[in-house]
Design a protein around this nucleic acid. Structure first.
Lengths: 336, 336
DNA sequence: ATGAAAGCGCTAACAA
DNA sequence: TTGTTAGCGCTTTCAT
């Protein structure tokens, strides 16, 4: 692996016949450099193939121009959750515009978490975006301790005054449930997934809000994950206990798709016998037949807002000024 | 943003009453440190809340213990491709075991690519894994120029002697096409997506192999992306030109799902009238009705193998010793 | 407008 | 076994 020594500012300085200080000034676009010097240095840089060493630069400038995005997601969901990709892309777009590098860090095992906290404190990262943290998440605690600019995507309740960009799960759940009820349903149930996450809990809360006095806890079926199979599971249970059910709010599109499959296999029609609505407006929504009425998550926007919040904190703004709740429009299709 | 000055080795040294050299030795687990000194230093580290500065460490050690994983994926696919997540997790697991940090870098715009090449050369990254590069990819060229340990996931044809971990797209395509033909089909077509990628081109090649003299170029419908909608598009075209078709190899599960939808809407039964097979064994496969016969991609394994290759190169091994082709088992279900 | 020199936080070679 | 010291590659006063 014959790594040949990389050119340094010194090499450039010698080649251009100037001092390292002047080279540095050119590198950082500072004024007070003569045109000749600038030209000579540019030529020298090209000639020796100089690329600045970020480690050295980070060391002296105490900043790296890189922002970490931590994904702490259970295995399976990470692989299937379409929002993560969109959040990443949104955050990247915002950071890229400010010439910051996005570095996505995975927290999969306890060992990862430990290494990560060391990495974060190490000075190679100026700020951090945390995606899908759960209540009591060790990452949350570590970040709080580090006191570095941070923004959460989502809003677990134990993040203190930290910045966050979240969607209004409760409001959106309330609204789509109302729409569902408005189609003339009287026995409306819910398949409530991921109640250990703020998103899951809030969607249930919105459902309860919407039903008001008509809310019947019996009609809520709890399942662990936002998954197709848990949707099937939940729907089977609901059907077994309440065969007269005529509306279902599934807490994600994947769950809704699973529920629809079970409903249709049981001989019921959608939306004729049972109206179904989901949440996410993911690729599942259009694949359902009929296509799913659901709530659109502005995932890219979440990433963008979180990234901009970190950037603002880097400029000295207070994290408390950056707690944003994004609204999600209902997308009404054929399933209810 | 009152950033309080972080403790340094010097602070620890003073607190523990030893020299910085000794602190450094403890930090790096070197021998020749007395038990008293070690104890005093450990206590001091805890007391002043010291965390080593990676920028400084990287600078002097000329290595950062971080590996980049570049995802250069067109917007939409990145969001939906389930393999990416699995590759990431696989790579992370391997690197984590060696105490390396995985940093996933997104290449979305030309600007990203430029910033990325600077970042890579900057000394904050010791090696790189490249996912889903395409022929003539600027990232590929940049990495070649940098001469840093690298491994590709997939094998674009212009990567020279670089290491790669790829699946045997051609062999797997050949095998599943043979299985499809073996069910007694005589007019077998293909919806060939992403022919600008090695994976897409190789799957077509495998299809051609399998059919041998029976291959009819008319029965190949080319579409741009591995997507559901392109699958629908492709199937419609095939049906229009060749209504007597009785078998279809779709170059991905998403494409197959779209094709099945069109077939069934046209009144044909699957697998009765037309047998359909896909590629990936992604979540689409089980969502189809009947479930899809397809090829399982060992995505996590790909990530793991690529990561281990980079690690090996870091230890001085030759990249040419690390070109691995992984086989993919056929998963036979009900769609053919 | 430019050069000289100090120093960011750390490791490693050398002395002791 | 430990302390001292010289850098790693860069930016940034302070002179000039």
């Amino acid at each position: 692996m014959e790594r040949k020594r990389r050119a340094t500012v010194k090499d450039v300085a010698i080649e251009a016949g100037v001092s390292r200080g002047t080279v540095s000034r050119v590198l950082n676009g500072q004024p007070y450099v003569s045109d000749e010097a600038r030209a000579a240095i540019d030529a020298a840089i090209a000639k020796v193939g100089f690329v600045p060493n970020n480690a050295a630069r980070s060391l002296v400038m105490q900043q790296s121009k890189a922002i970490g995005l931590i994904v702490h997601e259970p295995h399976s969901l990470f692989i299937e959750d379409p929002n993560i990709g969109a959040i990443l892309l949104g955050a990247n777009a915002a950071l890229s515009g400010a010439d910051y590098q996005l570095s996505c860090l995975i927290a999969d095992t306890p060992r990862d978490i430990e290494r990560l906290t060391r990495y974060l404190t190490g000075g190679l990262i100026d700020g951090v975006i945390i995606v899908s943290a759960r209540e009591g998440d060790p990452i949350t605690k570590a970040v709080a301790r580090l006191e570095m600019p941070a923004a959460f995507v989502g809003h677990p309740h134990d993040i203190g005054d930290a910045a966050y960009a979240a969607i209004d799960n409760r409001g959106a759940a309330r609204e789509i449930t109302r729409r569902l009820v408005g189609t003339g349903r009287s026995r409306v149930g819910m398949i409530a997934a991921a109640l250990d996450r703020d998103s899951g809990a809030d969607r249930l809360a919105g459902f309860v809000d919407a039903l008001g006095n008509d809310f019947d806890p019996q009609l809520v079926q709890r399942v662990p994950l936002y998954s197709y199979s848990d949707g099937q599971e939940g729907m089977r249970a609901l059907l077994r206990d309440h065969p007269d059910i005529d509306g279902v709010f599934a807490s994600s599109d994947a769950v809704a798709a699973g529920a629809m499959e079970v409903l249709q296999s049981s001989g019921r029609t959608v939306p004729g016998d049972v109206g179904v609505v989901g949440f996410d407006d993911s690729s599942w929504a259009l694949r359902c037949d009929p296509p799913l009425s659901t709530v659109r998550q502005p995932a890219g926007e979440l990433g963008r807002v979180a990234a901009e919040s970190v950037l603002a904190q880097l400029r000295g703004e207070d994290a408390r000024a950056h707690r944003r709740m994004l609204t999600c429009p209902v997308v009404w299709r054929g399933s209810a």
